[in-house]
Structures are given as C-alpha cells and as structure tokens.
Design a protein around this nucleic acid. Structure first.
Lengths: 206, 206
DNA sequence: GTCTATACAAAGATAGAC
DNA sequence: GTCTATCTTTGTATAGAC
C-alpha cells in the first residue's frame, strides 16, 4: 500500500502542528491551549485561528499527519523482504525508544486516548484507526516470523500483537512518571525474548 | 505489610471522592471540574471547597485512597500461601477486567500519568509510588512462581513484571478507544501463557 | 455544611484594522 | 497573515449570609 504524503501547507501552519503535537504528547490535549502555541511561536492567539479555525480542527490535523507518517514508515519496514522479522520488530520499536528519550513524551495517540471521553468524536475515530493499524501490522510481522521459523508464539499472532502494542504504549506511560528510561529498554527486551524461538526452547529445558 | 485504612471522612466527602475518581478515570484530570461534581451531587461548587479546599488537594485524596485500597488488596492476595502463583496473577488481573467492563474507564493512575506534565508535582509522586508498588509486587509473584516450578520466564522477574504491568495499563488505554472488551481478555491470556512453564515447553517443541 | 454572590484568570473564538 | 480588541464561557477560588 502506497500512501500519499499530506498536501503542502504553509510554513507557519507546519510549525503550529509541530508545537501542538509536542504539547499534546507532553501535557495532554485538554491541557494545551492556543496561548501555549502563541507563546512558543511568538505570535498572537488570533493568528493561529487563521490557520486552524478551531482547536478540534487543529487536533485532527495533528493526528492525521502523525498517523500518515507512521503508516508510511510501517509500509517501508515491511517492504524489504530481505529483512528478518526480528529486524522488523526492532525497526518498529525504534520510534518508541526515540519518544522515550525526550523525557516526558508519550505516543500522541496514547496521550489522546487517555482523555478520550472529554474529546470530540472525530478525534476518537482517528485514534482508533491508528491503534488498529499498528496491531494489524504487528500481527502480520509475527505471522511472518512464525512462517519463517524465527518466532515461537504463546498464542495467535493477533493476540500476541495486541499484547505487544499495549506493552509498548503502557511502558511509555509508566516511563514518563517514573522517569526511568530503562523501563522501555526492559520491556522491549522481554517482548523480543518471548517471541524468539531460540530463547524459548532454551527456557523450556531449564 | 499491614496498612491502616484511611481515617473516617464525612459521607459527602466520600461521595465527592467517588465522583471525582470516576470522572478522572473516564475524562482525565484536566478535563474534570468542580462544576461536574456539583452537578452530579446536586449541590453548589462552593460546597465542595468546604470539603476539599483546592482541586489539587482533592486529586491527592482521590489517589491516596485508590493507592491505599490497591495496596491492601495486593497484600491480601499474596498473604495466602496456599494459592498457586497463577491464581495470584488471576486475582491481580481481576480489577483490570472490572475497570474494562465499565465502558470508558482506565486505571486512575494511568489516566493521571497521561497528563502528568500539566499537573502539580505532588500528584506525580503518588502515581510514581503506585507504579513501583505494582511492578515490585508482580516481580515477587513471578519469582515465587519460578521457585515453585509454576512459571518459566524469558527474562528476570523484574523485567517481565515491567512488561506485564505496561501491557495491562496499555490494554486499558487501547480498549477504551476501540471499545473492544476482548482486548483485555486477549492480553491477559497471552501474558498467562507466556509465563506458563507447560505452554512454553510445548511451544518450544513445535 | 450549604448557600448566594462575586472575584479573577484563562479558555476558545470572532470582527475588523493594517 | 498578523495584529488589537472584544465577546462569551468556564474554570478555580473566596467572602459572608443562613
């Protein structure tokens, strides 16, 4: 599946999206305001309304861009048939490690999911799409790994994918509060070990 | 460890805590207001300030009660040495399933963790304590299971505990957005299968 | 303990000048 | 495209009557 890049936007609009995304990822959707963006960009609140008429509209644009970028990245990872399935999992986990590096961010969709009920329904649909997209992708990679003899799973690929995705999202959440970056590394290590055919065969013998 | 129950509070104060907790779990901390509570309780905003002078104070009281209740529950589960370690895990997972039943709640601390940066520092400390408490408890149960020959782990008990806790928190987050209750059931099933000595031994042979 | 009344700040949003 | 000015609503919080 080839997805088109979102159409060009003015530079200011793009900067607004950048700041809004960073704010949502670190403070949450309800807690960020046009004023925060105005301060960061050194313009007035009213100017932001020129680019994005309402906060909901801005929120949707942020998610759409985020989901689109991720979708393309996932396509790219899976495209190279030469790669081992474990390498694909590593590439998938990389952005989580990257987010975790910046002290207090979580996944954009994880942040929004946390206050879903207080939010416009349009946002919910987009986050839902993101979650399903990732879980489906992971299930496909896991199934591929099993078929190639790389992985041994304790349950169906779909269920293990659900567990893995939740574990990564949850790890970001916990990591932010405790401030301990090893949370992410540990979780990824365990997830990898648990699907690795070799490790499990050895563990079973012990 | 025996923990004392929190000291008695007026009935109204207790109702305020109930409503505040439900609101935080479903809408998030930033998005709930004294007005919401006043409406639900059919009193005026000002009356709530009599019981809890500030929103921060109310928030702390909600968390303290929540963490205290969980702490006592964990102690109780681990206290009965007759129980298998797998039973203990089942008992641990039960409240997550319960939360997931009510449509749109997540763990109170998960909800607060999602908007941590926008919140007073006192709240952060309490959520941090909650996360560490749970991960420590899980690690102890896992170690017990290994010692008794019930469990086979792919990594150290501490690391597997981190993964499990994150997976449960993340599952609640995802479940709320997708509205699909099987998310929780699937994740718990996989987590159990992955530590079960029997299942893994069989998987390794396949 | 609960009420009315009010203060004060911040939010999202719009109108219209430049 | 950005500004000033303004509107409206909502938020947390306090004072003081009952």
């Amino acid at each position: 599946m080839k997805r088109p890049a979102t159409r060009a936007r003015s530079e200011t609009a793009e900067e607004i999206l950048d700041i809004a995304q960073a704010l949502i990822q670190s403070r949450g959707y309800s807690a960020f305001s046009y004023q925060d963006i105005a301060d960061a960009l050194k313009i007035r609140k009213a100017s932001i309304h020129y680019h994005f008429a309402s906060k909901t509209e801005l929120g949707m644009a942020v998610i759409d861009r985020y989901v689109g970028n991720f979708g393309r990245a996932l396509d790219e990872i899976a495209a190279d048939a030469q790669r081992s399935s474990m390498e694909m999992l590593d590439l998938y986990a990389a952005p989580y490690l990257e987010v975790a590096r910046s002290r207090d961010k979580v996944c954009l969709c994880g942040a929004i999911a946390g206050e879903m009920l207080a939010l416009p329904a349009e946002l919910r649909k987009r986050v839902d799409r993101f979650f399903k997209q990732h879980q489906t992708w992971l299930a496909e990679i896991l199934a591929r790994g099993v078929a190639r003899g790389e992985f041994t799973l304790a349950d169906t690929p779909a269920k293990v994918a659900r567990m893995m995705f939740g574990a990564l999202q949850g790890a970001l959440l916990v990591k932010r509060t405790t401030g301990d970056a090893s949370q992410l590394h540990d979780v990824i290590a365990v997830l990898k070990a648990q699907v690795s055919a070799q490790v499990m065969a050895q563990a079973a013998k012990a």
